[in-house]
Design a protein around this nucleic acid. Sequence first.
DNA 1: TGTACATCAGTGAACGCGCGTTCACTGATGTAC
DNA 2: TGTACATCAGTGAACGCGCGTTCACTGATGTAC
Lengths: 202, 202
Amino acid sequence: MATEQTKNSRDSYHHGDLRDALLQATRELIEAKGRDNFSVTDACRLAGVSTAAPYKHFKSKEEMVNAVIADAMGRHYASLQLDLAGHEKGSKARIVAMGLNYVDFALREPEMFKLRFDPNAPEESPVLKENGTLVYNLVKEEVRAALKEPEVNAKVEDRSYMLWCFVHGMSYISLIPDVADKRPETPVAVLLDDIADRILAD
Amino acid sequence: MATEQTKNSRDSYHHGDLRDALLQATRELIEAKGRDNFSVTDACRLAGVSTAAPYKHFKSKEEMVNAVIADAMGRHYASLQLDLAGHEKGSKARIVAMGLNYVDFALREPEMFKLRFDPNAPEESPVLKENGTLVYNLVKEEVRAALKEPEVNAKVEDRSYMLWCFVHGMSYISLIPDVADKRPETPVAVLLDDIADRILAD
DNA sequence: TGTACATCAGTGAACGCGCGTTCACTGATGTAC
DNA sequence: TGTACATCAGTGAACGCGCGTTCACTGATGTAC
């Protein structure tokens, strides 16, 4: 792992790519210990630098965490594009794929997922808002195509929102500890396919 | 407000009902400033006692917060019972009422809602798990009745889970800052009624 | 009814801790000549 | 190619702070006689 390398041995006084190393350390620590237990000090320890070093790259702890969230959103968006590629535009499969991608991301990076939708700030950062709008417009466009509507009208808005609510809730529920006994045996993909039918119907 | 009274003036050396006052202070502070910014010190300030006082009633900060969550779950459950009372057993209206109650609680006590489903511990506390099972069994029973199934079978399990996912997601989405522009104009109650039809259909 | 006493809720001072951030510094690196 | 110099990424020590928790204590209250 790259982190291991950067952590213990450094060939020179300068780090080379400390900004990236700090982002990675921050992400790893938040995923491992939770947002509440993350500290800049820890990130420095993991990256193998002094506690003052981060301030050459970030203005504050908050900015560091925000950068990590933004980074995660970038990865999420890329993986979404990848997952969509295999399916025909306007097909239900494409919509199901979007849903699966969403749930998968939440399971893969739970803390990033939760931070993304529950930042500390009372309002979303511009980059988050932009990313959110981008993705949600994609959803609406898919729903419009699947419904064969000429434009994003009230019907499309409603159905898109229903889909989002469902998928968002399924993701969060999957992250609740000890919830296994409430989840049905039906696989997630099947449930998603089922609900897509229901929401796109009529 | 009771807090105002207990905060500034106390007639005697003893408080009288410090445990309750601390629970209320804790809840108010968490709702006002978020879980991350809550401190025992603050709660003591608000309750008007020394910082050592809470330890006569709680073993630790964690226990205090857990007590507040359990308390909130009690209130939530009571309000659910109240909302269900007006509707005929087995009716769709009853299911819609459950959904509305869920979303309303999330809006009314966002931090309690989030804490309930995302506690710091890696596993749910027994009291939370018990409460969760209690409520979810209620949901399944309602869905069973609405579907006219003789028992809680796989079909009932699936539909109940779908409903939960939807309602849970809708709640969380309602708490995202700046999300208003993505919500359709259709009122929540109408959307809930619509999705209930879809999920109960067939 | 009055008194001695046990109880224990709340005090206030102190603790050790880890934190985020600042500061004057150092030394590796790239560039101009 | 060699040297002087500007740049600036990273150092390490220190700061002030608020925190959770402990401790010996105090004084209000209820009860036994």
